[in-house]
Design a protein around this nucleic acid. Structure first.
Length: 262
DNA sequence: ACATTGACCTGAGAGC
DNA sequence: TGCTCTCAGGTCAATG
């Protein structure tokens, strides 16, 4: 479920493998996964362009091209990027939606088990972000801005954290993690948060996201104290030993420890 | 204006 | 073994 940390890992991957190289060819294998334009058009816009830079905003990944266009990737919940050697399609072949053939022989594939998520190409990444009204990236948000965003909100904290138009990058799994570590109940109303709650929430948010990025967004590598590793009803809370519950909050199943989270 | 709910997507895993 | 059912969660449209 690619959220900010996962997408940041994909960005670093793309930065390492694609920047400075030319896209020799593109093969759209599933035109339905290309948003806004036809697969053929996508191929012709992107082909023979050099990748100059990568960027991430929330859960969106951008590959900037030398003519000003940018490729946009969104991973839905099952998307990923991978490189292959030559023919090694392996299991990914089935899920490969778009295949990029780079000038040094590297092949990068955008794969997705479902059609949530998409690839497209835009004239200008910044105006694309404005158009879809993406909020500020969670990792480039100051406490001051964070407080301002919370101000006047009537919904739950969980809904707030997951709203991409307010704070971009946090999804179901990491919102649960942040709320768990901040000891705040997901259904708690934003307006009921104290000043102290807010600063805790902010600090924990930064900490959880950077820790996740530092560990390649791989749950295996994260400390056992992360709720991430105990997302299972009845599993035990790594902090108090109580049992992990599953409830519905903001229309999503949320895992929490009722004892730790009020 | 804002918040919540339901639909979409489709593979994995559980249960029978 | 295989069938059916439920769940996963990111976004968007519809509804409250």
């Amino acid at each position: 479920m690619p959220e900010l940390p996962d997408v940041e890992v994909f960005r670093r991957f793309l930065e390492k493998h694609a920047v400075g190289k030319t896209i020799r060819g593109v093969e759209v294998r599933d035109a339905k996964s290309v948003d806004g334009i036809s697969g053929r058009k996508f191929e012709s816009v992107v082909a023979n362009r050099r990748v100059t830079k990568t960027d991430r905003h929330g859960k969106y990944l951008f590959a900037h091209l030398d003519d000003g266009h940018s490729i946009v990737f969104h991973f839905g919940m099952t998307g990923y990027l991978r490189s292959t050697g030559n023919e090694a399609d392996g299991n990914d072949g089935k899920y490969c939606k778009v295949l990029f053939d780079l000038s040094d022989g590297t092949k990068i594939l955008y794969a997705n088990k479902r059609r949530l998520g998409m690839v497209t190409v835009v004239d200008d990444a910044a105006s694309f972000i404005r158009k879809i009204e993406l909020g500020t990236d969670a990792l480039s948000l100051s406490v001051r801005e964070f407080r301002k965003l919370l101000d006047g909100k009537r919904g739950s904290v969980k809904g707030f954290l997951m709203d991409q138009n307010t704070v971009a990058g946090i999804g179901n799994v990491y919102s649960d993690e942040i709320l768990y570590q901040a000891r705040i109940h997901p259904r708690r109303k934003v307006k009921d948060l104290s000043d102290e709650d807010i600063s805790t929430l902010y600090n924990v948010m930064q900490d959880v996201l950077t820790t996740a990025v530092d560990n390649d967004a791989d749950p295996e590598r994260m400390a056992g104290s992360f709720l991430l590793k105990h997302r299972d009803e009845g599993d035990s809370c790594p902090r108090c030993g109580g049992s992990v519950s599953r409830i519905s909050a903001s229309g999503r199943s949320s895992y929490l420890c009722r004892r730790c989270q009020r």
